[in-house]
Design a protein around this nucleic acid. Structure first.
Lengths: 155, 155
DNA sequence: GAAAATCCTACCAAAATGGTAGGATTTTTG
DNA sequence: CAAAAATCCTACCATTTTGGTAGGATTTTC
């Protein structure tokens, strides 16, 4: 019952993204240019687009690994990006609309503790199983928590 | 974030044990002999000692695997056993004293989602980590649930 | 055309998972 | 005393998952 490092890193990185972006998604426009400095490092962020190099350095995560993680998050519709000199990633929605659950799902971690919890058919004893109800309610508890807390809660 | 089959099987098997045993642990003495019949199978249980063959058949779990699981549960102090002809396993405590959490721990599944949750030292960023608090409170939630529900709740 | 970024695919080592095999041991019972 | 019924023990193993790395392709700006 451990959370994968993909999700750990992913969550940390998305929080870092939101912090550094200066963008808060949605209608409000991000500043044209922000100069950020932290821990001896500098970064110039254009229109809220944060380059991965910055996030990787700040959070001490391998750039290559982060690229893969952000690729998945983008494909899941959580991020948008720009390839170019002053490019990077940006949240597609405002931080208070992005849930931890979304990130987990995008990165392949399921919140249900057992397969049968969401799909009773995977096991023929599901109906009369004494334990399924328990695992299901625990999974639901986790689900609720994870779906209720957003990136904004970390800022 | 999946529960291991060891724990799934273990929980199911312990519930089956409690059901079949007729023993309810502690001071109350189990019946000298119970004749159980279910699903076309028969089993004679002496002094609450349930043989694994019965549990394995009832719950459709490989006997060999179950032996390993019950070995760990015994070493953890949850069960007692008797090797002999009319032997088997028995709960050491009454079912309402045996928690799901104990079973999980005995079988090697930790309830904490991240190592740093119980031991901040495993990561030097623990103190200033934005996400640790979240994972910790979620772990605590799981812990509470798992520690509050006992085998008696499944009977 | 160099530079700064994302993007893509393939590969890989290590660890965890979910077991099986084969027998040793203990105790009762016929 | 031997067979039987049970636990107990240890080693092995195949598969899957995890946690990455490597190497480059692509896009766009300066």
């Amino acid at each position: 019952m451990r959370v994968s490092t993909k999700v750990r890193y992913g969550l940390r990185a998305v929080i870092e993204l939101a912090r550094s972006s200066g963008d808060f998604g949605g209608r409000r426009k991000p500043p044209l240019r922000t100069d950020t400095e932290r821990g001896g490092m500098k970064c110039i962020i254009h229109r809220g687009l944060v380059p991965l190099t910055w996030i990787a350095e700040q959070q001490n995560i391998s750039l290559k690994y982060l690229e893969r993680i952000f690729g998945r998050l983008k494909r899941a519709g959580l991020l948008e990006s720009s390839r170019k000199r002053g490019g990077g990633y940006r949240l597609k929605k405002s931080p208070d609309k992005v849930t931890v659950g979304e990130i987990m799902r995008a990165l392949g971690d399921e919140t249900s503790l057992l397969r049968c919890v969401r799909n009773a058919d995977v096991c023929e004893r599901s109906k009369r199983c004494a334990t399924r109800g328990f695992w299901k309610s625990l999974s639901d508890l986790i689900d609720m928590t994870v779906e209720r807390t957003t990136i904004a809660d970390f800022l």
